[in-house]
Structures are given as structure tokens and as C-alpha cells.
């Protein structure tokens, strides 16, 4: 600065720091404000009576019930997979470890529609789909397809959280447990899993929110059939298409409420999770 003929005094330093802080603060406030505005606009737009009427309609009740049931089943499957795969990734070192991590993370980077298309090909006309059909199991455009779509969409998120949690737990705890007579499986069940319970629960919350909000994958694999494979996001999509704004907004409000609750629970547990 001195070469440029401007002495770098205390005042100019303070001024520079203030501008930097103000710029960062401004960006944060602007974006947060827009986000809150968009959510509030959804909550404030419809009339109260319309919302209640829509919420009590048979279509909405069916949609909420189906979403809850499929999401709960999916979360159970997702968490089983996440605990197993997260533990394998965190504890075992083997050739292709990084590749497996990348593969597991892939669906996170995929657009949901593309993931849905991949699953449609796998369960529709591929060898697996044909084999399932031979067994009398028709996955595509059924309620099972909703569960499969939700599992594949939510699993990478849950695996990531569980993997981070297990990585944060020293393997020496398990070595101590094994020195006390536990087999590897007992050490896992009696020590690692209880110690990771915060992260596992947080992963389940995230997975549940992802399952409830899963749209593109469900639409492609299960089809958006009214009152059959109609989950909450499908209700929103179908009713927007019909021009029924109140129903669409009601399903939006229910989805946002579930997401908010999930985020709050996740944040409460976040201290125990090492991502």
C-alpha cells in the first residue's frame, strides 16, 4: 500500500473491515429474507376455510396417509442400509473404498427425474424387473414403486450422516469392547450403534423429510395416479395442473410443516453428528 502512496493506517483498516462485514451481512440478510418471504407467501395466500376444506378432503387424507405410510416404511429400509453401509465405509478399508463412496453418493447429484428413469429401466424392462415379474411382483406404477423411489432418493443423505457419525467415533471403543469379550458384531451393537444414536436419529429425520418430499423419482417410477400412487408432492403437482390452487397450497403447507419440523429436530441433534 505504501508503494501506491496510500499509508495503510488504522482508520483505513477499520473501514475495510467494516465494508467487508457489511457486504457479507447484506448478502446473508437478502437471501434469508427472500427465503422467508417465499415461505410466508405460501402460508398467507389461501383463505383459512379453503385450507381446512382441502385438508379434510378425501384426496388429501388419502395422500397424507399414503405419504406417511410409504415414508415410514422407506425410512426403516433406508436406516437399515445407512447403518450397514455407513459403518462399512467408516471402518473397513478395502480396494474401491472411494469408488463405493462415490457410487453411494451418486443419486444425490442426479436430478430426481433421471434417477426415476434409471429405476424405471431397472425394475421395468431389465433382468431384475423381468425376474420380479416372474415371481408375480409388479413393482412399476405400484405403491411398492413409491417406497423404492423414496429409498433410492433418501438413502445417500442418510448414509452420509451415519458415515460421518461412525467416523467421529474412535474405533478404539470397539477394540476395548472386544478386549472385554465382545465379538465384532456385539461390539458394533453394544457400543458403536448406541454411541451413534444421535447421528442415526438425525439421519432418520433427514431421510423422512426426503421421503415425504420425494417427487420426480416417484412420478416416473410409480406414476402420478390420482388416489392410487398419490403422495403429497403428487397431490400438489396434480392439483396445480387442474388449477385447484387451494389443494396444491394445502399439500405445500403440510410438506413445509414436515420439513420445518425435520430441520428443527436435525439441528437439535446436530451437535452429536460429525459430518
Amino acid at each position: 500500500m505504501e508503494k501506491m502512496g496510500i499509508p495503510l493506517g488504522k482508520t483505513s483498516l477499520e473501514m475495510g473491515n467494516r465494508i467487508f462485514r457489511a457486504a457479507l451481512g447484506g448478502i446473508t440478510v437478502l437471501f434469508s429474507g427472500l427465503l422467508i418471504w417465499s415461505v410466508l407467501s405460501l402460508l398467507l395466500m389461501p383463505e383459512g376455510e379453503e385450507i381446512i376444506e382441502s385438508a379434510l378432503s378425501s384426496e388429501m387424507i388419502y395422500s397424507v396417509q399414503l405419504s406417511l405410510m410409504t415414508s415410514l416404511l422407506s425410512v426403516i429400509i433406508v436406516m437399515f442400509l445407512a447403518v450397514c453401509i455407513g459403518y462399512v465405509l467408516a471402518r473397513f478399508h478395502f480396494p474401491g473404498h472411494h469408488l463405493l463412496r462415490t457410487i453411494v453418493d451418486l443419486p444425490m447429484a442426479f436430478p430426481e427425474l433421471v434417477l426415476g428413469l434409471c429405476l424405471l429401466l431397472l425394475f421395468g424392462h431389465g433382468p431384475l424387473g423381468d425376474w420380479l415379474k416372474g415371481m408375480g411382483i409388479h413393482v412399476v406404477f405400484s405403491k411398492w414403486a413409491i417406497v423404492i423411489a423414496q429409498v433410492f432418493t433418501a438413502a445417500p443423505y442418510a448414509i452420509r450422516v451415519v458415515y460421518g457419525t461412525f467416523r467421529g467415533i474412535s474405533p478404539r471403543y470397539e477394540l476395548v469392547a472386544r478386549s472385554l469379550g465382545c465379538s465384532q458384531m456385539k461390539a458394533f451393537l453394544r457400543v458403536s450403534v448406541p454411541m451413534a444414536r444421535g447421528g442415526i436419529f438425525a439421519a432418520a429425520v433427514i431421510a423422512f423429510a426426503r421421503c415425504m418430499g420425494c417427487f420426480g423419482t416417484v412420478l416416473i417410477l410409480a406414476g402420478g395416479t390420482r388416489m392410487y400412487t398419490e403422495t403429497l408432492p403428487i397431490t400438489l403437482y396434480l392439483n396445480i395442473s387442474y388449477g385447484n390452487l387451494a389443494m396444491a397450497m394445502t399439500s405445500g403447507i403440510i410438506l413445509i410443516s414436515i420439513s420445518l419440523a425435520a430441520i428443527i429436530v436435525f439441528e437439535m441433534l446436530n451437535n452429536e453428528v460429525v459430518l
Partner: peptide
């Protein structure tokens, strides 16, 4: 042999007491 068959006890610097 796996650790559980060796009949050895171990104490680490940070004790590794099970927090749960």
C-alpha cells in the same frame, strides 16, 4: 486370533469409557 480370544485387557490414554 481376534482380539476377544486373546484375553488381554487394554487401557488407553483417553480411557475410552463408553459414554452411553
Amino acid at each position: 486370533w481376534p482380539p476377544e480370544k486373546r484375553k488381554l485387557g487394554i487401557i488407553f490414554q483417553d480411557y475410552m469409557l463408553f459414554p452411553h
